[in-house]
């Protein structure tokens, strides 16, 4: 058994965003921090929006939360009225110590997981998310790495083997894990191309904030082109030193 990893699921709850098909099953083994947020213009006081929309928003959030609970997840709900969705998401990640954020897109039952491994930094959190979410499923996990020019095959081998061992310790049996390494290609293109045959992508954030991911950093091209759910593993906010 592994600890349930905390996964943030941000939903613009009053703008018709809902939980797409398959997402609740995807996070059945996680601790879901369900963030319903509503972005209001600066002319409006957040409390003003709350007076009018709280009931409707709470009802929806309640219903979405039940979806996750029925699938087996533990759920924590938060409803936030804000002028700045990005700040709200970042703060919630920090306050609830979320390991990853889900970009919720519909998916079929998960059989193949693509894990984009960038380097040693944050690799432990990556492992905890993969093991926590997919450890008890039968999904096969593919560790995917685009090697830099200066990286030797030996370096790459050490990196991926270490991760395989770590995942094995955490309950993802080694036989379920494949590794794939590519060279001489643009990292983003490579990931999006490779992700086409997979159901879910797990990747590290390219920027200190998830929100930049959602709102338009290079990585969101992955989500856009991939069309399936993406788990964005967050950096450890507390420490900048590489974890063991």
């Amino acid at each position: 058994m592994t600890d349930r990893p905390s996964i943030l699921v941000p939903i613009r709850v009053l703008e018709g965003e809902s939980i797409p098909e398959g997402v609740s099953e995807l996070l059945a083994n996680a601790h879901v921090v369900l963030l319903g947020y509503h972005v209001i213009p600066e002319q409006t006081a957040p409390g003003q929006a709350r007076m009018q929309f709280e009931e409707r928003a709470t009802d929806r959030l309640e219903a979405y939360g039940s979806l996750f609970e029925q699938a087996g997840a533990t759920v924590e709900r938060r409803l936030v009225f804000t002028h700045d969705g990005q700040k709200t998401i970042d703060r919630t990640i920090a306050e609830h110590d979320c390991l990853a954020v889900l970009v919720p897109n519909a998916t079929r039952p998960v059989e193949d997981v693509l894990v984009a491994v960038r380097g040693t930094v944050g690799v432990d959190r990556l492992a905890r998310v993969v093991a926590g979410v997919f450890g008890e499923t039968n999904a096969s996990v593919t560790l995917y790495h685009v090697a830099e020019d200066e990286e030797t095959d030996e370096d790459v081998g050490t990196l991926l083997d270490g991760l395989v061992d770590r995942l094995d310790d955490l309950g993802v049996d080694a036989p379920r894990i494949e590794t794939r390494v590519e060279r001489d290609t643009d990292t983003l293109d490579a990931i999006t191309d490779a992700s086409e045959v997979f159901d879910v992508v797990v990747m590290g954030e390219t920027d200190p904030s998830l929100a930049t991911f959602v709102f338009g950093m290079p990585a969101d091209q992955v989500a856009d082109r991939f069309l399936g759910p993406v788990l964005v593993v967050q950096r450890d906010a507390a420490s900048t030193t590489p974890e063991e």
Binding site: R50, R78, L79, V80, R91
Partner: peptide, 25 residues
């Protein structure tokens, strides 16, 4: 009158434990 919030922190005003008003200025 609308009831008073539960708590006030550096980042939010909290109502009913689960509803938060974000501070952004």
């Amino acid at each position: 009158p609308v009831e008073e919030p539960e708590a006030v922190t550096d980042d939010v005003t909290v109502h009913d434990d689960e509803v938060e008003l974000e501070r952004t200025i």
